[in-house]
Design a protein around this nucleic acid. Structure first.
Lengths: 178, 178
DNA sequence: TTTGTTTCCGAACGTCTTGTTCGATAATAG
DNA sequence: CTATTATCGAACAAGACGTTCGGAAACAAA
């Protein structure tokens, strides 16, 4: 593949990361990204239609790495024979890798797009668990589990990821019906 | 107080409601609101600094009505001697009054601002309950309760408020530790 | 190395939205 | 009736957006 493309994409993503840590997503203009990435204006638009599309691409990238078994990874937390707890723990550790960026996104207007992706990946994962509870519709339960996990992550980020993944999972299992 | 002010504010809010049901919040321009409200451009800006401020005012209005005991209401669900269940039920019924607008907001970029307000009011309410659970930090528990309720409401709105408030509260108490 | 293709650059352009200004007009309160 | 205050709306500047295009540079493949 053309190295120029990879280079430009990388420059854009890096610039985006750098900016999102410093400033609110809403206040970042396409021109800011272009300047930070040091590329031509039209070049940006050849890669991404809008700023939102860039964020979407970033989210896709991020969650693809988290939720899709890479094969190269030491612990295959997403293989069939790993527990739900192991999978969620795996996610928390991954999120920790991008602390600053994630906190930045969650504290800005990018939050919505980020959470949209997070939720869609999580939902698929939860669906595969086939969890049931007498007296509660599956759809409701699924949303509750997914939502509770997301809320926990947001809360965690708001507190600068102070707590350990182990603590979070422990507490979660105390208040969740699974 | 000057009737002109009240009249203009009302026109703006009504226009906003009408638009938010039809179109995505992000796609609504200040000019759209002005046209729909049939007022002068500068008049709008004398009342609200930005579109977001208008939404904030709307949210404040909405939640103030829901969370603050009005005195004129038949059932004082927010009086000291009403249970947590009664209070939450009261909220759900209130939300039902503005179905369409709320669904519109939650499905658009206005979601974030709306949820921000919702959360802040809810948090205060949950704090007053002084709920504890051994082995789980109060802060975490508080966020979990607040978050679960919000997630439930969002899920409900996404399904056009199909379920009854009673059902929702029942299911919630099945999966919550209270 | 050569050749044909692809990407990058960046200035320039039109468009849209925002938020402000200001003088004239009309409604309001007291 | 009068002084005050709100509304109107045209006009303006500023800023961001997304597009265009021709030349320069990098690339892959032969």
């Amino acid at each position: 593949m053309d190295r120029r493309i990879a280079k430009t994409r990388k420059a854009i993503f890096s610039a985006f990361d750098a900016l999102i840590v410093k400033a609110d997503y809403a206040k970042i203009s396409v021109q800011n990204i272009i300047d930070e990435a040091d590329i031509g204006r039209s070049t940006f638009y050849e890669h991404f239609e809008t700023k939102d599309e860039l964020l979407r691409a970033k989210c896709k990238d991020l969650f693809e790495h988290i939720f899709v078994p890479s094969g190269t990874e030491a612990t295959h937390a997403f293989s069939r024979n790993s527990t739900f707890k192991e999978k969620t723990m795996h996610i928390l550790y991954h999120l920790l890798d991008d602390k600053k960026v994630i906190k930045g996104i969650l504290a800005s207007e990018g939050r919505q797009i980020f959470l949209q992706y997070f939720r869609s990946y999580l939902t698929v994962m939860v669906e595969r668990e086939k969890i049931h509870l007498p007296g509660v519709p599956d759809e409701f339960l699924k949303n509750h589990i997914t939502g509770s996990f997301i809320e926990t992550v947001c809360w965690w980020a708001g507190r600068d990821f102070r707590e350990s993944p182990e603590e979070l999972i422990d507490w979660l299992s105390e208040v969740m019906p699974i």
